[in-house]
Structures are given as structure tokens and as C-alpha cells.
Amino acid sequence: MFVSTRNETILNAESGPTQSAPTPGARRSAAAARASGWVDLSTVRWALGRIVFGFAAVIIVMSAVFFVTRSTSDPARKMLPLGSSQEQIDALNARLGLDDPLWMQYEHFLSDMFHLDFGRSIWEGRPALEVVVDRLPVTFTLVGLALLISIVVFVPLGVIASLRPGSLTDRLVTALSLAGLSAPQFWLGAMLVLVFAVELDWFPTSGSGSMIYAVLPAVTLAFTMGGRLAQVTRTSFLDQAGSPYVTMARAKGLSTFYILRRHVLRNALLPILTIASWDTARAITGHAVVVEVVFAWPGFGRLVIESVQRQDFPVIQACVFIGAVLIVVINVVTDVLNRIIEPRMESR
């Protein structure tokens, strides 16, 4: 949800007309840092700040979950099957400490969270966090494959579109990415199944096992991720195309391909990679949930929905926690790497 502004910031910082020139001091310190092979102190301090902020964000997310759930209904009633007696509810409340005063519960909740203890899954009886973490590799496979497809297919499409803005190719690429951004994954997935699994019988309709099962879900997910990536690539390359060094290279008579590879790619790559990594975090905690349900892909997202159906609250809580941690970690790592690679970009 938050990719856009930062992405704009980066695009502007890279090449926008509003870019402020780095002060000589900053340039020198950055150069010194690079020369010494290590980042300067201000970057370290800034990175630590980001990490602390990330931790705080996770705690606030989980606190929000805590207060929302405690304010509405008693969780015990939700967890027990319908028609359970009042004694059963009271017993579970006592066992889970839900009859303590709210501040005490909150204290317990926080201390449990720091110990990564979210209780046991009601369905499986194992620790909830373990249940969630077990599902992660399966989702990473799916999202990784989708990311690969978007980088291999959609980034080149964005480059081709940027070569001749306004041409037929550009329009087609634009239409494709707009369609990808506008189509719901559950429908796109169903249509792909209809064509490639039912009519053509190239791929299985759903399930998991070998890699062949991952193709259709990954392609579905790649449409959403790639639609954005193609556009970001196009913008990023177009921004570079107008800069003096490209004109200079052209004047020297270098071929377009050489200019793209040696000059433009280097400068345009950073925003593209940044968006790709932020979108990966978003995909894991968002779009992949829908795709996994459509294709019965036994990952993290399907676990979330299954847990809702099974009223398995500890697992839902652990899922939200893992989701928040993933987003924070991926974003912080991306931001820090960005800052190290491109010290000019002091966006915050």
C-alpha cells in the first residue's frame, strides 16, 4: 500500500527536476565511505533508527490486534464450538488468562510476543508460530517464481516500451500492465485454469506436488506484480533517456543497446529493484493469499483463510505477526541497501 510515495520519492531523487544537489561535504563523506569499503557513521545511525522503528511498528500492529479482539467479543466463545456450555467457556477463559484485568492481559500478551509464543494451534495442537513458519517456504517458492517471471518478462517489456514512447508497442505494453493491475487474481486465475488446464490440458488445475503445479499460480501472481514493474521500468528508463549523458553517448555514435546496457541500466536499476522488493513483501502478505486459495496451494495465505474457517485464533495471530515482520524486514533491508548503494538518496 505504501510503495507508491516512496517510489515517487526515489524516482524524483534519482532524476526529477526538483533534485537538490548533494552538499560537497556529503559527497566527500560518501566517497570516503566507499573508498574505505564501509558505510559512514550517519548511515549506521540511520539504519539503526529504521530497525527500531520497524520493531515499534510490529509491536503496534500486534497491539492493534490485541485491543480489537479483546474489545469485541470474548475470544473463548469464538474458539469453542457453537453450543458450548458457560462452564466450558469459563474454563477456557481461565486457562488462557482471559479473566484477568485488561492491562495484565496486555502485559502477558507483550511478554509472550517477545518470547515468540502465540499459544498452540487449536486445530493442530502444535505451537502456532511453528505451524505458520512451516508454511512459509511453500509461499516463498510461489512468490519467488512469480517475481522471476515478472523480472524476466515484464521488465524487458517496460524497457521496450520506453524506447519509443507513444508507439504501438508502448500502447500494448501499457494496456497489458493496466489489465494486470485491474484484474482480480481470483478471476484471472480461474480464466487461466479454464484455458490452459481445462481446454488445453497443459497444466493441472490446482494442488501441489511438482513444479508444474506452480506455473499457473505464479503466472497469475506475476500479472499483478509485473504490471506495476513494467510501468516502473518504463518510467525509470524514460527518466534516464532525457538526461545529458544519454545524449552524449548518442552523439558519440554508440548503439542503443550499448547505451542501455552500459549507462541507462545502471542508473535505472535501483528504483526497479526497490519496487520489486517492496512488491514482494506486499505479494506475500496480500495477493498470494488470494492466489493460494484459488489454486489450493498449501502456503501461508491458504493457512490464514483455513484458520479463519477453523476458528483457530492463535494461528491467525501468528500469521499477522509473521506478515508484519516480513514487511518490516524486507522494507528495512531494501531501504538500507538503497542508502548504501546510493548515498545521495537521503530521502528521510
Binding site: 505504501f2 511498528a57 492493534a64 506478515g323
Partner: peptide, 8 residues
Amino acid sequence: LAFPNLLL
């Protein structure tokens, strides 16, 4: 911005 919105 750090909220996993769908999960929440």
C-alpha cells in the same frame, strides 16, 4: 505502512 493490511 508496515501493516499487513489483508491479514489485519
